[in-house]
């Protein structure tokens, strides 16, 4: 277990040493500072009486029952809390994952570089353990950053408002889970090609494709007899990154989830990609 733990720690430290990760930590801290000090909720007996952002009034004057003015969407305390949390969750999902992929994409190709891989694989550690230690190191650091940002936001908003909805915490698992899925693509390309650039192109490409696949129901009928099954094949085979955004936001807003399928199919893709990565890594000559 010691060598596995050693590689876990090495990966963790290596990722932490990347400026992008430090940047993510600083941005997360700024978001938490804004949520803590710049967002002021005037709550009286459980109702929102006013909302100030950076000292400026951010809502129309509330009515007597604590709700906003009659024009536009009604602004309740719960609405404000879940909206803030949903914004942070959406940010963590899109910006956080994209930047975390950018920061971590070079790690495995670097680990396999001549001069590094010999030092690692000549130790009494199996290749599967080496891969596992690396992957766990990446997951755990991204998990810590996600918990710091999203968990911190949830805690601050809940304390400030008195509105606690623990379901939001599930969205943390979704963000980390989807990072893990997309990192599987990065790892697969890293093991196969040892190219950081290609790993990033493929993972970002999959995210872009998922934007198209999210509209499969509307696009499908427009396609011919060949295009339609291809589109549906891709929809089921590739990660549904874009569609999972809706799950994250729905969890953050405490809305019901109609289907978890985009998440399950994405996790299946991740599982297969990790399996293939492991198989190739074990069989490779260095």
């Amino acid at each position: 277990m010691r060598p596995l733990y050693g590689l876990f720690l090495l990966t963790f430290r290596e990722l932490w040493a990347k400026k992008v990760v430090l940047g993510l930590f600083v941005i997360s801290s700024l978001v938490l500072l804004v949520v803590t000090f710049a967002l002021n909720l005037n709550v009286v007996e459980g109702s929102l009486q006013g909302l100030r952002l950076f000292g400026q009034e951010a809502t129309p004057a509330p009515s007597a029952n604590g709700q906003g003015a009659s024009e536009g969407p009604q602004l309740t305390l719960t609405n404000v809390v879940v909206t803030v949390e949903a914004i942070v969750a959406g940010m963590a999902y899109w910006i956080g994952i994209l930047l975390a992929l950018f920061a971590s994409a070079s790690l495995f190709p670097e680990l396999q570089a001549p001069g590094r891989v010999e030092l690692l694989l000549s130790k009494p550690i199996s290749r599967m353990q080496a891969l596992l230690g690396h992957v766990l190191g990446v997951w755990v650091l991204v998990g810590i950053l996600t918990v710091y940002l999203m968990g911190g936001t949830w805690l601050i908003m809940s304390i400030k408002s008195g509105v606690w909805h623990p379901r939001f915490l599930l969205s943390i698992l979704l963000v980390v889970g989807m990072f893990a899925v997309m990192y599987a693509a990065v790892l697969l390309m890293g093991v196969w090609t040892e190219s950081t650039a290609l790993a990033l192109i493929v993972s970002y490409g999959l995210i872009f494709v998922s934007l198209v696949l999210a509209g499969a129901e509307s696009i499908g009928p427009l396609l011919g007899s060949v295009g339609r099954p291809v589109l549906w094949g891709l929809y089921h085979a590739l990660p549904n990154f874009s569609e999972v955004t809706e799950l994250v936001v729905r969890l953050a807003r405490d809305d019901p989830i109609s289907s978890w399928y985009p998440l399950w199919s994405s996790l299946a893709f991740g599982g297969v990609a990790y399996g293939v990565s492991g198989y190739w890594f074990v069989r490779r000559d260095f």
């Binding site: 001069g115 010999e118 030092l119």
Partner: peptide, 11 residues
């Protein structure tokens, strides 16, 4: 094992 052109993490 001491490889010829070994590389340690620079940080």
């Amino acid at each position: 094992f001491l490889p010829e052109n070994h590389q340690f993490p620079g940080f």
